[in-house]
């Protein structure tokens, strides 16, 4: 593929997609921002002093992150089976590795905060809507509904490739899926923010940010 003097923007679209979906591209990318880190952070990063309430809030947020990361991990892993081409399978393998790393970092952080049984704590504190979102996402994966499952995962993560699922489903159908899942996303924000006591005005900004992200992906 491309050498050091590559004219990136002169690549054919197919060559570009091949490159950015490759394991090599992913590996060299993460090497850039993970080198020198231990469990996702600089070893010399000082530990912040948290009040009891702040610690509780942080644990609740992290528990909900863990649900999202677990959904993404299981979703990406399951999607490999039904991905329509080799490039998508390879890309999903890199996403699965990434999501596994994120989950490990978060669980480790929970332990650092004194949570002795992270799995139990996650079950206790997870937003019911987020858990329901995870269930629905994995149902789509189990149902081998590629376009719906990959779309749902992108909504959760606000990332991942858009091109593949657009090729495999009419926009109208994806709009229906979005209409179905948006309330769960927004409700999960509210439930988590309730649990951590975030002021209402900040919650609304979170919801707006989510909707803006979806709109940037072309689903206004």
């Amino acid at each position: 593929m491309a050498g050091t003097n590559v004219d990136l923007h002169g690549l054919e679209p197919e060559a570009f997609l091949e490159e950015v979906h490759s394991f090599e591209f992913w590996f060299q990318s993460v090497e850039g921002y993970l080198v020198g880190l231990e469990h996702g952070r600089q070893p010399q990063t000082p530990e912040a002093t948290l009040s009891g309430l702040e610690r509780e809030r942080l644990i609740t947020v992290l528990c909900n992150y863990c649900v999202g990361e677990t959904a993404a991990l299981e979703g990406a892993g399951g999607l490999i089976q039904i991905a329509p081409n080799r490039a998508a399978k390879i890309f999903l393998s890199t996403q699965a590795v990434d999501e596994g790393r994120h989950l490990e970092v978060l669980v480790r952080r929970l332990r650092e905060l004194g949570v002795e049984e992270p799995e139990a704590e996650i079950s206790l504190r997870a937003s019911r809507s987020l858990v329901e979102f995870k269930r629905r996402l994995l149902d789509l994966v189990r149902g081998r509904d590629w376009a719906a499952a990959i779309f749902a995962q992108n909504v959760i993560l606000e990332s991942m490739e858009f091109a593949v699922f657009e090729l495999h489903a009419p926009r109208e159908r994806l709009a229906v899926i979005r209409e179905d899942l948006d309330p769960l996303v927004l409700q999960s924000f509210h439930e988590t923010m309730d649990a951590v006591g975030t002021p209402r005005e900040e919650r609304e900004e979170l919801g707006r940010n989510y909707l803006r992200a979806v709109e940037r992906l072309g689903f206004a």
Binding site: T4, L8, F25, Q28, S29, E31, G32, Y33
Partner: peptide, 11 residues
């Protein structure tokens, strides 16, 4: 910009 491989960072 370190979120892409080195050879593409200049872009």
């Amino acid at each position: 910009f370190n979120e892409v491989p080195k050879k593409y960072r200049k872009f």
